[in-house]
Design a binder for these strands. Structure first.
Lengths: 365, 365
DNA sequence: TAGATGTATCGAAGCGCTTCGATGGAGCTT
DNA sequence: AAGCTCCATCGAAGCGCTTCGATACATCTA
């Protein structure tokens, strides 16, 4: 392996000069810089990551902690991860993939060892057990999802309450008065992930404002489960004409079942789904939907991390250090952790109208 | 941050002693070890990753290069990634997440900088452009998927040819004589990912042996696309009674369409899918299927990496390295890059019989 | 008992990089 | 011409760890 010293010798300069060419932290004359750059190229030099990390106490690595579970929103998780990875690279950072399998301790291990400079936590629960560690960690963290108490935290998420309201608005505008929500699997509610509740809250809230009725039924993704939920809905509220589907794996079965039961979409029943566009467009009737902006969530998370690191990127965009809340190294002993800024970035939902929603039918009650 | 030196002082021993306690590379007397371990715990010490990497020239990181594309097998990719992450941790390693966005250069960067000790490449194409770099890299790599030329490489994959044969065997045993394959999207074939072709080859091969007829139609995952493929199939071969679906996102539409067309599954048409069990069991008719053993692929990949690193694991299970279809190590001179062993580990497919396949109907031709 | 053998620990030399404070000229000013 | 200020570069001191000989002592052997 080629070392910096060898590059220096080859270029006829000192090691520190090569280092400064690499980092740009001091001005180097054009001729010297070019000579060094040529040597780097000719020798095929790659700075040693460990040495760099040791000397600078920065690893240029961002840890991403993903849920191990794959019962929900797999494509969304995947897209977030990919967005994080590519955005991080655009800022000259790499991504370390962690799972929650290891438990909250992983946070301490990765930050404590200096393996990563910052963390991004996915699938945050209302009372997430990683939060205490995030609070005490000497490195920045960004959450994807909202915990119950966001004080001192930085979070990104889709505004699920607004999403719920948006779905209701859309159906209400089309004249629907009786709505049903096919929700997530009961397990999701039990886990207190928050987003499912927030969606329902948004739906109920707006429905109440507009004087609509709403029936909410949790539902697994399986065909039988959707069949059951649907049966219960029409049993209890035969006049239902608008359905909001939150569980993306329920959309396929739902459409099949409606067709089976002789209910036309959108003529008899309108359907709005909360799901990736890919799912919405691949069904027999293209679905009016609100997409979860997975890519943007991942990208934003990284950008918030970069801002907190006060960094300026490698190949990335220049500039832009959003100031965080104070530094403050105390004099003598252990100083209390400096109070941190609270940042909650909720992304506005966008509804795309497709074939599955239309005017509410005249009902003959 | 607590350093090794502080731990040493706290425990009243030298730094090297602490290091040996940590690594176990030299015997340390029980009392000393316990004292050191207590100090480590009390001080909350975490070895600095950078320093460790620099001194030992091992980062204990495995790089995983994933496809950025999300048009195919997303759940499978995700499951592989998760299996890699958890298995790696069980061996005391972390995982660096790379995408192919950065191009083949990423291999050189990550290996050249010593950021990772080894690589796992997913979604390997027949003539993958990363292969030259893998060959010249001074660190081990494991491929998930088979390139055209596996000489000197280590690969893991599902035996797709056997998968194709297995599907045919199953349908043939039930008396079906005319089969159709709903394949992957044309783009997948154009990309030369290999597995799709290998499946078809297996299907054709066994069909020929058993005297069955097979029609293969590539197909996107959308409803229209499946409808088109299906129409062309029944148009050309009205006597088709057995369908093999390789494109997992086609299964939902396929079942809807068949029902719509008054063809009962399995009474009129038997369907075998190549898809995750989760997909197979969530459909209206539970599907007989061959699952892609994503978890095992990820696990195996890591185990092969560990074997190549000549390591012995951290918290991991012991477990054996089954013998591969290895070819020999050449006995050449030590001058050029030492010839590497070829290991191709093909996992045997397993077919699970569910509701979607049954006796071939008597046809009235 | 001198020597050989083994065990538990220590000391010191790096690993390859960053970074801070020189250093030596060139170009100004007065 | 002496004194300044800049600019470009160099030297050296670590960063926190691993690892390779010592070293010191205890135990065994002949």
């Amino acid at each position: 392996m080629v070392t910096l010293a060898e590059v220096a010798r080859h270029a006829g300069v000192s090691a520190s000069t090569v280092s400064y060419v690499l980092s740009g932290k001091r001005t180097i004359s054009a001729p010297t810089r070019e000579r060094v750059e040529r040597s780097i190229r000719e020798l095929g030099y790659h700075p040693n990551a460990g040495a760099r990390a040791l000397a600078s106490s920065r690893s240029d690595i961002i840890a991403l902690m993903m849920p191990l579970r794959t019962d929900m929103y797999v494509p969304v998780m995947m897209e977030i991860a990919m967005a994080v990875a590519t955005t991080a690279r655009a800022h000259g950072r790499d991504v370390l993939l962690l799972t929650d399998q290891e438990g909250p301790e992983a946070v301490r291990r990765v930050i404590g060892s200096g393996l990563a400079d910052a963390m991004i936590l996915m699938d945050v629960e209302l009372e997430d057990e990683r939060l205490p560690l995030v609070h005490e960690a000497p490195r920045p963290a960004v959450l994807i999802g909202l915990p119950a108490d966001t004080e001192g935290l930085t979070c990104v998420d889709l505004d699920f309450a607004a999403t719920g309201r948006l779905c209701v608005d859309h159906l209400a505008a089309l004249g629907h008065r009786e709505l049903a929500v096919i929700g997530e699997a009961p397990a999701v509610y039990e886990r207190h992930t928050g987003f499912a509740e927030r969606t329902i809250t948004g739906v109920r809230e707006r429905a109440a404002e507009l004087g609509l009725r709403v029936l909410h039924r949790p539902c697994e993704g399986s065909f039988e489960s959707v069949a059951g939920a649907l049966a219960r809905i029409f049993d209890e509220r035969p006049a239902t004409t608008g359905i909001v589907v939150q569980n993306e794996s329920a959309v396929g079965p739902l459409l099949s079942l409606l067709r089976q039961q002789g209910k036309a979409v959108p003529e008899d029943i309108s359907v709005v789904a909360i799901c990736p566009d890919q799912v919405a467009t691949q069904t027999s009737v293209a679905l009016t939907s609100v997409a979860i902006p997975a890519h943007e969530m991942g990208r934003r998370a990284v950008e918030l991390v970069m801002a907190k690191l006060g960094a300026s990127a490698g190949t990335g965009t220049g500039a832009g250090t959003g100031t965080g809340a104070g530094t403050g190294t105390g004099a003598g002993g252990r100083v209390a952790a400096p109070p941190r800024e609270t940042v909650v970035r909720l992304l506005a939902p966008r509804l795309t109208t497709r074939a599955s929603t239309g005017q509410a039918p005249r009902l003959v009650p």
